[in-house]
Simulated scan of single mutants.
Amino acid sequence: MSIPPAPRAPIRPGTILVREHEQKLHHVVVTKDGFSWNGAEFGSLSEVAFAITGTRWNGPRFFGLRAKTARNGAAASP
């Protein structure tokens, strides 16, 4: 039997997330209603990741807020 992960604390408004993709830095600002990137507002990090890459991503994973998991659901070793 596995123990579920502890809930994560929400990201505070005003936090800036930075991600490099295709040799370009992207800065996303956490707002009280979602996220702001390139002057556009988004409701989720997954929407921002899609806007940046053009492909579906788990937003928290794309921005390094969630660890990758192994196929069995356990955290992958570094």
Rank of each mutant, 00 (worst) to 15 (best):
N38Y: 07
E22N: 09
A76T: 08
F42Y: 13
P4V: 10
P4S: 10
H21F: 15
V30W: 02
G64S: 10
A9G: 11
E47P: 04
P78W: 08
A75G: 09
R61G: 00
L17R: 03
A6S: 15
R66M: 00
K24F: 05
P78Q: 09
T55Q: 07
V30F: 05
A75R: 10
R56L: 06
E47H: 10
S44C: 08
P4L: 08
I16G: 03
L25T: 14
F62K: 01
R12F: 02
T55A: 06
H27A: 06
H21M: 04
V48N: 00
I3N: 11
K24N: 12
P78S: 07
N72R: 03
T69N: 09
R19Y: 10
A70P: 04
E41S: 15
T31S: 09
D33P: 06
L25E: 15
S77W: 11
W37H: 08
V28N: 00
F63E: 00
G54R: 07
I3T: 15
T15V: 14
E47V: 02
G14L: 03
H21D: 09
F42L: 01
A74K: 13
V18Q: 14
P10M: 09
A75K: 12
R19C: 07
H26V: 00
K32C: 05
R12E: 09
G59P: 03
P10D: 12
A9C: 12
R71G: 09
G73K: 02
H27N: 09
I52A: 02
K24T: 15
V30N: 06
G54T: 11
L17I: 15
E47C: 05
M1K: 13
M1P: 15
H26S: 02
S2P: 15
A76R: 12
T55F: 06
A9W: 08
S46N: 07
E20D: 15
N72E: 08
H21W: 15
R8D: 07
F50Q: 03
D33K: 12
A40D: 12
E22Q: 12
L25G: 06
A70M: 07
S36I: 01
G43K: 11
V30L: 06
T55I: 14
G43T: 14
G54A: 02
S44W: 04
V18N: 13
K32Y: 08
T53K: 04
G34V: 04
V18I: 15
T69A: 11
K32T: 13
K24L: 07
F50I: 08
G64P: 09
T55H: 08
G43M: 04
L25Y: 13
E47D: 14
W37C: 01
H21E: 07
S36N: 11
T15P: 10
A51E: 14
A49R: 00
T55E: 05
F42N: 01
H21I: 03
G14E: 10
S2D: 09
V28F: 01
V48Y: 00
T15Y: 13
T69G: 08
P10G: 10
E47R: 04
P60Q: 07
P60H: 04
M1H: 14
E22P: 03
A6Y: 12
L65A: 07
F63L: 01
P5W: 05
F50C: 05
L17A: 05
D33E: 14
T69E: 14
H21S: 09
S44H: 10
